[in-house]
């Protein structure tokens, strides 16, 4: 059995080198498919990053009356978390002092700060900043705080002013996800077409050899395996090449890519997911090589 495996591996290796141009063409085609696959992975990373940023920016501020104590506000927060836990992602308490210092920090010595100084007191109210799991659910939170039980405590819920922006941002996040899906389908189709053409090329060039092998007395597995090994090796070479190309290109253009993708750095994403990406590339490359070789020989080995 071991001798048989060694013989087949040796045969597949010899075919790879001796069919130089065909192996190169097959590897190149698989390389393109691996590149498309890797672009998809990075695109998904970018899309998640951007929707994450958008979702982080979507929140509702609930302002409490000046006389409401911090303990009471925290009690309301706990009640909200308990009653609407399926909706709420995060609730932060912002005291009037925190709001004041954040404002002065953002508007360092500009006319706003000067106007604030002229007032002579802190006009900011304590608030709860609420983030929902799904941005579309902000209305649940605003309706919750408009109940009669909170009318004495709550000064304002700012969804009237932010509602439109929240809906816009929410639809933008959905749009990015939909676009990601469309790009995935489009790139997968291209990869499939490329694979199909590789397959046809293989069938055309190897047809006569397979017939000779069978006539000489080779059984189906003895014909099939060297071709599968050859295909897998082409896929392996294509994957490693794609890995190196991505590593180098993303490193060289890391600065400009980060600017282009609004803070998303594809090189950092590549490095932090390096093992998963390498495995995915090998899976795509070796898988495509095996599948195309399998289909190339299958037609001639049927009963």
């Amino acid at each position: 059995m071991i001798k048989y495996i060694v013989k087949i591996l040796k045969s597949g290796w010899n075919y790879l080198w001796r069919q130089g141009f065909l192996s190169f063409a097959t590897s190149l085609v698989i390389f393109i498919a691996v590149v498309l696959g890797t672009v998809l992975i990075i695109f998904h990373g970018g899309a998640s990053f951007m929707t994450g940023i958008i979702k982080d920016k979507i929140d509702i501020s609930v302002y409490f009356n000046e006389q409401v104590s911090m303990d009471k506000i925290l009690e309301v927060r706990d009640q909200l978390l308990k009653e609407k836990k399926e909706v709420i992602a995060k609730v932060d308490f912002v005291s009037s002092e925190d709001a004041y210092s954040a404002f002065t920090k953002d508007h360092n010595n500009d006319t706003y700060t000067q106007s604030l100084d002229a007032i002579g007191s802190n006009p900011f109210l304590p608030s709860l900043v609420v983030q929902t799991k799904d941005p579309a659910q902000y209305k649940v939170v605003s309706d919750y705080f408009r109940q009669d039980q909170f009318s004495e405590l709550v000064y304002d819920v700012n969804d009237y002013r932010r509602g439109f922006a929240i809906e816009r941002l929410s639809s933008l996040a959905t749009g990015i996800n939909r676009m990601g899906l469309a790009v995935t389908i489009f790139l997968s189709l291209i990869a499939l077409i490329i694979t199909f053409n590789t397959l046809r090329l293989s069938i055309y060039s190897q047809k006569e050899e397979i017939e000779i092998m069978r006539l000489v007395g080779a059984k189906n597995s003895f014909v099939r395996w060297p071709f599968l090994i050859q295909g897998a090796l082409c896929g392996f070479i294509a994957s490693i090449l794609a890995f190196i190309v991505f590593l180098v290109v993303l490193f060289i253009f890391r600065g400009s890519l980060e600017q282009l993708f609004m803070g998303f750095n594809p090189f950092n994403f590549f490095i932090s997911n390096i093992l998963i990406i390498l495995i995915a590339q090998l899976f795509i490359g070796v898988g495509l090589g095996l599948i195309s070789s399998y289909f190339a020989v299958r037609r001639y080995l049927k009963d």
């Binding site: 010899n14 050899e209 000779i212 069978r214 006539l215 000489v216 189906n220 080995l301 049927k302």
Partner: peptide
């Protein structure tokens, strides 16, 4: 005889062809 079992018959046969039918990469 099934196509996949034809090799058993072919082990008893030697082929010589007009166009030689040699494996080009061997």
């Amino acid at each position: 005889v099934k196509k996949s079992d034809a090799y058993l018959i072919r082990h008893k046969i030697g082929f010589i062809f007009q166009d030689f039918k040699l494996l080009p990469y061997k």
